[in-house]
Computed example of a mutant assay.
Amino acid sequence: MVDSYDVVDLVDWTRGESEPGGDEAKRWFIAPETSPHAGHWLFKPRRIKTLELSKERRDRGDRPDVLIRGEDWAEKISYEVAKLLSVPAAETELATVVQLRTDERVFGSMSRDMRPHTWAWTPGAALLAECDDDFDAKSCRGHTVDAIREALNGLRGPVGTDYADWAAFDVFAGYLLLDAWIANTDRHAHNWGVLQDPRTGDVCLGPSFDHGSALASGDEDRVRALRVQQQRVATWCEHGRTKRFRGGEATNLVDIALDALSVCGAAARQHWAAQITDVDLDVCFDIVAATPNLSDPTRSFVRTALATNRKRIRDAVR
């Protein structure tokens, strides 16, 4: 029996500033001194959406269905499997808090601030814009593997990790490998970036973060259940595409990862191929089992998706 991951209650934590853009629910918190989770964390609630009813159901007087998105469990599972790959990623926990504005308890995930104290953060979009006057973050024009490689040229891997002396792009290739494994479709130009030490001016790649769209977390539970029932999870994996690269063109996630592995250093290519090949699926399945509040069909879906995508990637990198 695998122990479930804790859901951290932020009731005694110090509330910091909300994220820019007026999102009151997405807020920074500071752990109390007695907490095992020392530091500065960003809480992100799982999103809840009321779905539009068909005319027939409206006429019947049915109540609208409510979609509870799974960003929280997707973030937690993605972080834990990133560790299995040894991909540097922002530490993530499940969390809950009572919103002061509504007095409502909400659930979500929290990620530890990946910035060392006083270090500056620059998103990938700013780096790409410096290299390409035609880059456009909204349309993803200019967000390509080759452009990212050029933008990261001369930079090093994340500070405080085993990759601190690696070329930044060699580490970034691992991020794209992770995306292909977890079906993360949201690696846009603001979902990666670099950190700068204000004392020395040194710049390094930041850890991977923001994996909430992974593993079909935005689908209804019944949709994931139907894929399992009809044995269509493998087909879903094969159709996994992102529109965050190549000017918004729908591109297979495994192809994006392979593009990065084909142009990174030989040692890095061998390293990442070995990492995905050597993953213990039983440990991976334990991660899914330890994630609380998942339905049995969703657990089955996530296990099958991770096993299927791992095989697809392993076959491709051989």
Results as ranks from 00 to 15, higher is better:
Arg156Ser: 15
Ser262His: 12
Ala89Phe: 13
Ala126Lys: 06
Glu19Gly: 00
Thr291Phe: 04
Leu281Ile: 14
Glu130Phe: 02
Trp73Lys: 08
Cys140Val: 07
Ile182Leu: 09
Asn252Arg: 12
Gln231Ser: 13
Ala189Gln: 04
Gly193Ala: 04
Pro32Thr: 08
Pro45Met: 10
Asp136Phe: 06
Lys83Trp: 05
Asp296Cys: 01
Leu258Pro: 01
Val171Trp: 04
Pro116Thr: 07
Glu238Thr: 12
Cys204Asn: 08
Phe107Lys: 01
Trp236Leu: 11
Leu127Cys: 06
Leu177Val: 15
Asp202Pro: 00
Ala168Phe: 10
Val7Pro: 01
Met110Thr: 00
Asp286Thr: 03
Val317Trp: 11
Gly160Thr: 07
Trp192Cys: 03
Val194Arg: 00
Thr298Met: 02
Pro20Asn: 02
Gly240Arg: 05
Leu195Cys: 09
Gly22Asn: 08
Leu85Gln: 07
Val283Ile: 09
Glu93Asn: 10
Ala183Leu: 15
Gly157His: 08
Ile68Leu: 11
Gly212Leu: 00
Ala305Lys: 01
Ala167Pro: 00
Arg318Asn: 13
Ser262Thr: 09
Ala316Tyr: 11
Ala137Thr: 08
His190Leu: 07
Ile287His: 01
Gly142Gln: 10
Leu53Tyr: 03
Ser217Glu: 08
Phe29Met: 10
Arg227Trp: 13
Cys237Met: 06
Ile182Lys: 11
Asp315Asn: 15
Asn191Trp: 06
Asp210Arg: 04
Ala95Asn: 02
Tyr79Val: 03
Val159Asn: 09
Gly218Glu: 15
Leu177Asp: 09
Leu100Gln: 11
Ser78Phe: 08
Arg312Ser: 09
Pro123Leu: 04
Glu130Gln: 15
Lys243Val: 14
Thr14Ala: 10
Pro88Asn: 08
Ala167His: 10
Gly201Ile: 02
Asp134Lys: 10
Arg47Ile: 03
Asp286His: 09
Val283Tyr: 01
Glu249Tyr: 11
Trp119His: 11
Asn293Trp: 04
His190Val: 06
Leu195Ala: 12
Phe43Ile: 00
Ser111Gln: 15
Ile287Phe: 04
Arg222Cys: 07
